[in-house]
Simulated assay, not measured.
Amino acid sequence: MSGGVDSAVAAARAVEAGHEVVGVHLALSRMPGTLRTGSRGCCTIEDSMDAQRAANIIGIPYYVWDFSERFKLDVVDDFIAEYAAGRTPNPCMRCNERIKFAALLEKAVALGFDAVCTGHYASILTDADGNRELHRASAWAKDQSYVLGVLTTEQLAHSMFPLGATPSKAEVRAEAAERGFSVANKPDSYDICFIPDGDTRGWLAERVAPATGDILDRDGAKLGEHDGAVAFTVGQRKGLQIGTPAADGKPRFVLEVRPITNTVVVGPKEALAIREIAGSTFTWCGVAPANPEVAFDCDVQIRAHADPEPAVAQVVPVSGSTTGETELVITPNEPLTGVAPGQTAVVYVGTRVLGQCTIDRTVSAVPVAAMSSAAADA
């Protein structure tokens, strides 16, 4: 129970469905701040109190479990390390993967519970053979199946999402008000919970030592210098501080962050178009495809609120690997924009979440030679 309206209503529905329910709030931070800033952040002392009040109304036992050390190691430290490596991580995916449906689920099962029930907007359906599948929620505007794409078959077997078939968030709020929950009109939390003021760049600057490096174009020519590569993300336009204008007069965007050489590569907007993404760290959510080595049609989603894009996916050997390593290669029908290593690509077949991968590499739809030729012609 996060202290929000969704988990409160989910707990109440689980009780009414006949389950023996215990409310648990996760203490994920030991920061001294107790109050959220507007709708930013979550998991504060204020949230814990809101969750307890809801549990009291429902009439269920309520506990606070301290997972702050595990959260720091598996989510916060991972977030810092990924940015330092020039990647763009999704901490919500890591929290679901390593905390809520790993550490929490492991403890719950050890204590004799059957499942972890949350207020996520997603649905679990059963196929003709009795296999559980994760599907989008009926309210696509609130669908959260993307951030649950990291769930494995075993984790899916011990998960419950009572809000999956709810038509809208407004209906959940109305139900909460009818039940007397004080959180009925509480704002949704957003942004990164451990950076409640939303200043990711400033937060990282305090934890990753800045080092001056070069800003290059796609041909390797030096255009300027930066004060720390960690401050840049793929697709960024503002704050590049390049004195030399592009030959065509158009703005430049960050195309790559190379931590080994501490360089940032910039180029035209067209070069952000990506025709292929791939990741060697991939999992299947539910039953895996019978022959994933054979290319299959799917949809791919690369951000929580992005539209799914038609694509073809296939598991292939990693080029040059001597250990038999494989990777999930996804080729969208139309190029994707602003994709960065570290992001999560979730694969769907219809409304079903089939699996996911952490993006290791991308292939631009516009080769360097083509861009150089276009610039010369201009």
Rank of each mutant, 00 (worst) to 15 (best):
W140T: 14
A27M: 12
S48C: 11
D191Y: 03
T351V: 07
S48L: 14
V234T: 05
T323H: 15
E334S: 10
A141C: 06
E293G: 08
G338D: 13
D188W: 05
Q343T: 05
E325S: 12
V234L: 06
G38T: 07
A375P: 00
F113V: 01
G235E: 02
G224L: 07
D74N: 14
S280W: 02
M1K: 00
A10C: 08
V265E: 07
I195F: 13
P335I: 01
I215T: 14
V150F: 01
V21C: 03
G119T: 03
L125I: 11
G33R: 13
T358S: 10
N185T: 10
S364H: 13
F79N: 03
S372L: 13
A209I: 11
H120M: 03
G112N: 00
Q155I: 05
L125G: 01
R252Q: 00
G350A: 08
G59Y: 00
A246T: 08
E97K: 09
A184D: 09
A137T: 05
V329W: 10
I57M: 14
A115R: 04
A247D: 11
V208K: 03
A288P: 03
A211H: 00
K169S: 12
N291Q: 02
P341N: 13
R207V: 05
F67G: 12
R237N: 11
Y83N: 12
R201E: 14
E293K: 11
W203E: 02
L336E: 02
R13C: 02
V75R: 13
A137W: 03
R258P: 01
L28S: 08
G228L: 05
V64L: 09
